[in-house]
């Protein structure tokens, strides 16, 4: 009846799980920063890109041309 609750393993387990969750979240945030789905910003640069192409200043890449 007077069995002691193993506090230390529980704390270690909880801390391990918290770190695991934190690390997964950190990695996902990093990936979200690298691979970003479009938002309003891309619509702002879209017109600039369209203008560059339509004015002939920016042309489709052709293999063999220097970049």
């Amino acid at each position: 009846m007077n069995e002691e609750v193993p506090i230390v393993p529980i704390i270690v387990g909880v801390l391990g799980a918290l770190y695991f969750g934190y690390e997964i979240d950190r990695q996902r945030n990093k990936l979200r920063a690298i691979f970003n789905v479009f938002d309003r910003k891309e619509s702002l640069i879209a017109s600039a890109l369209e203008q560059l192409v339509e004015s002939g200043q920016l042309k489709p890449y052709v293999p063999g041309e220097s970049v």
Binding site: A33, I34, F35, N36, V37, F38, D39, R40, E42, S43, A46
Partner: peptide, 16 residues
């Protein structure tokens, strides 16, 4: 409605 019909994604390689 969020992106005024511009869709796609970008890859920010300079963060690496």
């Amino acid at each position: 409605k969020h992106s005024r019909n511009y869709h796609g994604f970008r890859l920010n390689l300079g963060l690496i």
